[in-house]
Design a protein around this nucleic acid. Sequence first.
DNA 1: CAAGTAGTTTAGAACGATTTTAAAGTAAAA
DNA 2: TTTTACTTTAAAATCGTTCTAAACTACTTG
Lengths: 132, 132
Amino acid sequence: MDNKEKLRKVGLRPTKQRMIIADILLDGINRHFTAENLQNEINSSGNSMSIATIYNCLKKFRNCGLIKQVESSKDTAIFDTNINQHHHFLDEETGELIDIENDEVNLHKLPKIPQGYLNNGVEVLIKIKKQI
Amino acid sequence: MDNKEKLRKVGLRPTKQRMIIADILLDGINRHFTAENLQNEINSSGNSMSIATIYNCLKKFRNCGLIKQVESSKDTAIFDTNINQHHHFLDEETGELIDIENDEVNLHKLPKIPQGYLNNGVEVLIKIKKQI
DNA sequence: CAAGTAGTTTAGAACGATTTTAAAGTAAAA
DNA sequence: TTTTACTTTAAAATCGTTCTAAACTACTTG
Ligand SMILES: [Mn+2]
Ligand SMILES: [Mn+2]
Ligand SMILES: [Zn+2]
Ligand SMILES: [Zn+2]
């Protein structure tokens, strides 16, 4: 399925701008990135795009499930092209995130979900720091 | 140990402002809050404080281990008075966080920490959503 | 295809959270 | 007590992100 179809399938019009972003993000390679990182990649690919459009697209892509947004206490939003349930190592010094595939973690015991709520995904974050 | 001692012990001068904040935060009750939430509590207690001072103190308190900062993709920083290793339920709709005590989760299998790094804490986030 | 219309892009302004500045104030050290 | 280093503050600055409103474009309908 090409990117045009992927966009159509989630109900997004395949505009020129969304196709440029899809060509960068939906190539099957997992990456973590900010809006500014993406703008740099767009520029490097010989294109250019308003930062407002980049934010618009990232929000649409995220809401349609084409990408995820990472929970992060940094002040810049971090997005993730790995949309499978998975986990992360985080180096808090540098902010670097490393994927952990779902089957590398085994949660033996989980607490009861609060009354009236449904489980909507479990994420494990392993904070790491450089050995001295 | 009173709050003045607690501050001294972590190497912070017990200034008037830090004592006001310590009196609110270090009362043994676990809570999640923003800088603005705290400013409101300070105001309600009959005191007042510059927002810059509140941010200064929260950063110092966090760096000294008196409070934690939660990983959150919201744009406002969320702090946590529960400094034990623990986990959270997150309602992504509302942003509400609920503590999960450490012994309510059992991680059976963990991935190998990357070469040259040390494990610096594991956090489990269980996203929940309201049942319809 | 030819309108029509609903959705999209954009530059720039606006916004909200946080940090910086620099001057005045305070705690601890000498 | 004097000195020194640290802290607080209001206000300005900064930074990431969203809003505005006008121009543009993809899709729909005839
Ligand atoms: Mn955040
Ligand atoms: Mn932000
Ligand atoms: Zn990831
Ligand atoms: Zn907590």
